[in-house]
Design a protein around this nucleic acid. Structure first.
Lengths: 140, 140
DNA sequence: CGGGATCCATGAAGATACTG
DNA sequence: CAGTATCTTCATGGATCCCG
């Protein structure tokens, strides 16, 4: 019997894989895009800069916590710029960087695939469900 | 004073938006791709079908629960096919459908952007962190 | 107006054990 | 071999309060 159990070795493999996932640019990118609000903020900013309040109105459903968090993450990644105007009521504007616009383009591509193929997905999904849902219809 | 408070109206807006997010093909697609294991399984299957056990070995870090769950979801979406061979030890093969291969192509595009731009992201991230981390270095 | 900090509910991810 | 069922754990997201 080896020192490491199968579970332990699997755990090590998992750790190594997690590392790979964290390293792989594609996985990192997908992670960023999977952020539900990130893509929404990006496309909202695509047609011009916005103030914080405008964003919170145009991206409803996002709490300020999530919005701020998303904005911070996107700013950190160099996808958008944050401009603070220290007036009496502070004014903060957000706008895309060239890198951000580049990502919006990619988002358009993804969008294109979605519109071209998601109908097939929906169909497949409906068929799949149809084969499972009638639990008591076909067996009796 | 209206019947609905600001919080309630925000809640309704959020609900409506959640509905939009669920409806929007792009959001649905991103949701699927964001599934950490989904993209991994797809690219693994890109160069040929695999048995369940093979997948669990080639995609370590995924518990069988996660693997099964991912495979079911992908099958449901019509991205891959599941072929059961009822032998003594059951044999199950998974392989991409044309739709699945199409999605792998999209994944390649995403991959391309990632490799072209993630270095910029890393740089931006490092700069951003550099402006925050030296908490006592630049202020004193 | 913009946002940081905190607390809490929810759901997803993993380990384990069992089945056919 | 190929799962399914269950329990626990943990990260995520949201509500709230408060500050500049």
């Amino acid at each position: 019997m080896p020192t490491r159990t199968a579970a332990q070795r699997r755990h090590e493999a998992a750790a190594a894989y997690q590392e790979y996932v964290r390293t792989c640019p594609t996985q990192r990118l997908l992670g960023r895009l999977s952020d539900k609000w990130a893509s929404l903020v990006l496309v909202t900013l695509a047609d011009g800069g916005r103030r914080y309040g405008e964003l919170s109105r145009e991206v409803p459903g996002a709490s300020q916590k999530m919005l701020t968090q998303t904005l911070r993450a996107l700013e950190r990644d160099g996808l958008l710029e944050r401009a603070v105007t220290p007036a009496v009521p502070v004014r903060v504007d957000y706008r895309l960087t060239p890198l951000g616009r580049s990502l919006v383009d990619l988002l358009s591509t993804i969008n294109g695939w979605a519109y071209r193929h998601m109908a097939e997905v929906e169909t497949a999904r409906a068929e799949y469900d149809a084969r499972r849902e009638p639990v008591g219809a076909g067996v009796g």
